[in-house]
C-alpha cells in the first residue's frame, strides 16, 4: 500500500490544541491510534492497527533520524524529533514528535507511546536543509552504514553549540512555540 503512494507536496495541518497520539508494540507495529491520527493520516482504524509505523514515513526523512530514535528508545529514554510524515493521499505534515517507552507496572518495556504536536515553521526551516544533507550523505554511503553516517552529521549541529541533541531540538521547538 505505502509503496504505491506518491508524495504530492501538499501540506496538511492540524491545530495547536490537538495531538496525534499512537501506541506501538516493541517491533513498531501500531496498536492504537487516536482520531486525530486517523484524520490527519487519512487512514481508518482497521488500516492502521497492526501496521508498521513506517506506513506514514515520508521519503524526505533520512534513515539516520530513525536510527537515533531506536537507539534512544533502546536506552529507555524519550526521543524528540522533528519528523515529516506522509498521509494516505501522499500529502505531508510536519510534527514535533515525542516518543517514550511504555513500561508495565514491573518496569518492563511493553511498547512505545508517541505524541506528535504541530512542528513550528521556524523549526522546520532549520531542520529541512539538515535532513536534505543527511539524505545526500545516505545516498553516497553503503546502505548499512548510511544511517550512522548521516546521524553523525546530525549530531554535529548541537555539538557546535555545546548542547545535547535533546536540548537542541527542544530549543528549536520552544523558540518556534513562542513566536
Amino acid at each position: 500500500m505505502k509503496n504505491s503512494i506518491k508524495p504530492t507536496g501538499k501540506e496538511v495541518r492540524f491545530n495547536d490544541r490537538e495531538m496525534i497520539i499512537s501506541k506501538s508494540d516493541l517491533s513498531g507495529r501500531v496498536t492504537y491510534a487516536n482520531r486525530c491520527f486517523m484524520r490527519v493520516a487519512n487512514y481508518s482504524e482497521t488500516q492502521v492497527l497492526g501496521q508498521q509505523h513506517s506506513l506514514i514515513r515520508h521519503p524526505d526523512m533520512p534513515r539516520g533520524v530513525f536510527r537515533l530514535l531506536w537507539d534512544t528508545l533502546q536506552q529507555n529514554r524519550e526521543f524528540f524529533g522533528l519528523v515529516k510524515n506522509m498521509n494516505s493521499d501522499g500529502d505531508f505534515y510536519w510534527v514535533f514528535a515525542n516518543i517514550t517507552p511504555d513500561c508495565d507496572l514491573q518496569g518492563n518495556i511493553i511498547g512505545y507511546y508517541s505524541v506528535r504536536r504541530p512542528a513550528p515553521a521556524s523549526a522546520v526551516r532549520v531542520i529541512e536543509p539538515v535532513y536534505r544533507r543527511m539524505l545526500e550523505i545516505e545516498r553516497n554511503e553503503p546502505k548499512n552504514e548510511a544511517p550512522l553516517a548521516s546521524l553523525a552529521y546530525l549530531m554535529e549541529l548541537p555539538a557546535q553549540e555545546g548542547l545535547s541533541y535533546d536540548q537542541f531540538i527542544l530549543n528549536l521547538y520552544q523558540q518556534g512555540e513562542r513566536q
Partner: peptide, 8 residues
Amino acid sequence: HQRITHTA
C-alpha cells in the same frame, strides 16, 4: 497504557 480498539 490500555486503550479500546475496533469500535467502528
